[in-house]
Each structure stands twice: as C-alpha cells, then as structure tokens.
Design a protein around this nucleic acid. Structure first.
Lengths: 240, 240
DNA sequence: CGGAAGCTTGAATATGCTCAACACGGGTGG
DNA sequence: CCACCCGTGTTGAGCATATTCAAGCTTCCG
C-alpha cells in the first residue's frame, strides 16, 4: 500500500479528480485524499443530453451524482399531468435525496449535463461517521431550503411580469456569480415550457412577458435562447 | 468518573426535561444526559400568545428554540407588503436557521405557543463536533425541504379550491398523525388572513372555498375555527 | 424543400381579485 | 342588561389578469 506517489502536488489524489472543477467544492471538498481515492474507485463520469430523466419520482435511489456542468431540473407532477419545477441544480450540487430510500422528485437534465455518479452505498459510507461530509450535505439542504422559500414568495404572490423578471434575475445572478456588473448575458438553460412550469404559468404567458421586457428595452433576445440584460437594476425593480 | 448514577430511570436528566414532551424528539433526543444537563442550564421555557413576532427577517439570530406546543408561521414579505407564509412549524421542530448569522424569514406565533429557548452558542457548541445533533438538524432541513417542494406544487399549479382542500388535508394529517381514520376534527391554528398568505390567495377567496366545501358536505365549521372533516378521502380527491 | 418542434401572437373566456356592504361574536361601558 | 364598537369573517357585483384555444411564424434538420 501507498506504493503510490507523494510527488509534488495533489499527492495521492486520483487523476480523474485532479482535473475536476468540483474537486474542492461540494461533497468532494470535504474528503481526505484517502477518502477521495476510495470513492473514485466507484465513480463514473457521465454525459447526458438535454431532456433525459435521471431519477424518477417515488423510485428507489440507487446512486448519487455531483453535477459538474449544465442544469438539472427537479419536478413534481399531479395526477392529471400538471407539472411544477421545484428546483434547479447547478455545479457542484449533489443530486439525489440523502437519507431516503425513495426520491421525492423527478430529476431531468434541462441542458446538456455532465455528472460524476457514484453508488448509494459509497456516499453512505462517507456519511456514516458524521463529520465533514454530512456537514456539507446539511449546508446544501439548508441553502436549498432558503432558495425554495424564496421561490414560494414568487409563486404565491408575484404577478406574471414579476415572475418572469425574477426568473431572469435568478439566472443572471446564478450563472456567473463572479461578475458583479450592471449587465449580463447568457443562454437560457430552460425551454419556454420548463420556464412556465418553474413559474406556475403557461408558455403563452411566459412568451408574452418576455416580449414585453424586450419591447421595454430591458432585455434583448437572440435566437429564442440567448438573453442580453442591458440594465440589471431595471430588471431587479421589476421583480416586485 | 462515572461516579454518577445508574439508578433507575431518567438518571441524571434535568427535572425540567423529564416532563418535557419533546425530550426524546427533535434536538434533545440526540443528546446524552450530560449534554442535556449542560444545555438545560441555559434554557428558558417561554409562552407566547398568538400574533407575537419571534424572529425578524434579516436580523441577527441570538437564540434558537424548540417548539413544544402550538404553531409557528414563517413568513416573507415583499417591499409593497405582499406576504407569503413559507412554512409552518409544529412541535418538536427547531426554530431558527442553523449555521447562519441572520434569519432569512420572519417567525411569528400563529397560535398560543410554548417554546424552550436557548442561546445560539449553546446549540453551536453541541453541533461543533458534528455527530448526532448535526444529524438531527440535517434531517429536519431535509424534511422541511421536501415539504417546501410539495407546497410549491400547490402554490404554482393548483386552483383555489384545490389549494384550500390541500391546506385542510395538510392539517388533518399533521395535527394528529397517530390517527389514521376516515374523519378528523381540529381547530384551525391560522386566521383566514394567514391561510390566504399560506395559499397565495385573498381572504375572500379562502372564505368562499371554505363555504363551498361546507355546502358540499365535505367539512363542517363551527365558530369559524373548529373544523370537522367528515370524509377525508373525499377531501383528498379535491386536492388535485 | 418539407416537416416538425418550439415559439409568438391574437381573441375570447374564466378564475380569482378588488371594492363594498353586511354579519357575527366578544368585550367594554353606560 | 343592553348598546355600542371593533376585529374577524362572509357574501355579492364588477373587473383584471392569466388561461384557453387557435393560427401563424422561426429555426433546425433531414
């Protein structure tokens, strides 16, 4: 054992993880090199294109995954087919409900996505002793809870115009959180149908409100998907 | 050491805690007798009548509390005064956002409430080493996240009639979770205004929908607050 | 070029909101 | 004891916002 490297840097860290953007974030940031090595024996790097189902509601969870790139949407459906997006996950979020045998949501790729998957028992082993891994998972749960509650205000109390503005503002502040500028530009990771399901609106209403924001020169839209926000402060005002 | 008791029962447990209904639940259920004794030196049992503010949004958190009796509502407001209830807490929930310096919500008593309060550092000391306390807090956060996401479906995709039915169904299944009967009876812990803020409706709409459920013989209401549910299955169907 | 999927636009409709009046119950004071 | 008031809840009429239904437009891709 330990015939392996303690070379210069990244000593003992699996090759795959060395180049991983999520290496120091999410769950992996809480692992010792030894734990990382153990975990990496079970991991699988996976790409999925947009529109694929990753986890089905009410089905047993067999594996967890870190989101490395792209956007995953968490949805719930009523019996008659009405759908609600209840969360969006970006890198380096952990995908999968910890401490439960069954999922409580459907997880689908909203854009092309890259994942680092690992079997359920591998994560559970790391959590068993409590400690830093459990701590990170708790922190993610608390953050997601804050986000869910913020969104409940949008769903329950905002007008259609405010909902759409809030959605764009959310993306602008999440997609590139480093920038702190007055403008923003990005590709919408969600279709109009997904946006509607996120906002509790119809696709027609979403479309009309986007058109209105465009007419009011608050945003520009190219190719249906690419958004330029000219005045982030103006957009903020329209969030209610 | 261990000079101390292995007497009969409840050995070494503070008197106040011995008679506490939450003793084996919530945070306290994760504590050793020693930890419980240490914590109990800082706790204060408090009663608050309905309508009192417990924690203000965006204000520093100075203490946490266990809910022992009654209902606490968590709310958020928009600048123009529109309000949304984003969560309800029952015994034995922990009140207060762990791992944050400021609250992200306003907490108010919805009914008369009994709390067991303790200062922020006391809980943080118990969490420091990770372990069972942190585990319980994580479990509560995950449960609240599931509940918040369930409620997002109600807010975003259900009709007014379905929202009111869902609210009554939620209470019926939460207030006395032991019973598993076809009927239920309870006092509404929330005013019409609070119910409206929970459901993203106006008080008039809530009132009309309650009247409709009454006219359809699904529920009875006495004294505005006392509700009899005659047919829980029928109510369930109306939840959408 | 044709077809399909995704998006936009328009007109008619319905659902829930606003505004207003009224009912009920509990407390206070003459 | 009754009169009054105030907070809370109900009911009604008219209205506004978002939905529904239907048609047409882009873009992408074979």
């Amino acid at each position: 054992m330990q015939t392996v490297r303690n070379d210069i840097h990244n000593s003992g860290i699996p090759v795959l993880c060395q180049s991983c953007e999520a290496r120091h974030q999410g769950i992996c940031g809480a692992l010792t090199p030894e734990q990382l090595t153990a975990l990496s024996k079970h991991t699988r790097r996976v790409r999925r294109e947009a529109g694929q189902e990753l986890i089905a509601d009410a089905m047993p969870i067999t594996s967890y995954a870190n989101v490395l790139r792209g956007v995953v949407k968490l949805t719930k459906v009523l019996e008659d087919g009405r759908q609600q997006v209840v969360g969006l996950q970006f890198a380096p979020d952990l995908l999968g409900r910890p401490m439960a045998s069954e999922s409580r949501v459907t997880a689908e790729t909203a854009s092309d996505v890259e994942l680092c998957m690992f079997p359920k028992p591998a994560l559970e082993a790391l959590m068993r002793d409590g400690g830093p891994v459990e701590h990170r998972i708790m922190m993610q749960a608390l953050r997601e809870l804050d986000e869910a509650r913020d969104w409940m205000v949008t769903l329950g109390r905002k007008t259609a115009a405010e909902k759409v503005a809030s959605f764009l503002y959310l993306l602008a502040t999440h997609i590139d959180p480093t920038e702190n500028s007055a403008v923003a530009a990005f590709d919408l990771p969600l279709s109009r149908a997904d946006i509607a399901d996120f906002l509790g609106l119809t696709i027609e209403t979403v479309s009309r409100q986007l058109t209105k924001l465009k007419a009011d020169k608050v945003i520009e839209i190219a190719n249906y998907r690419h958004v330029n926000i000219n005045d982030l402060a103006q957009l903020r005002v329209r969030c209610g």
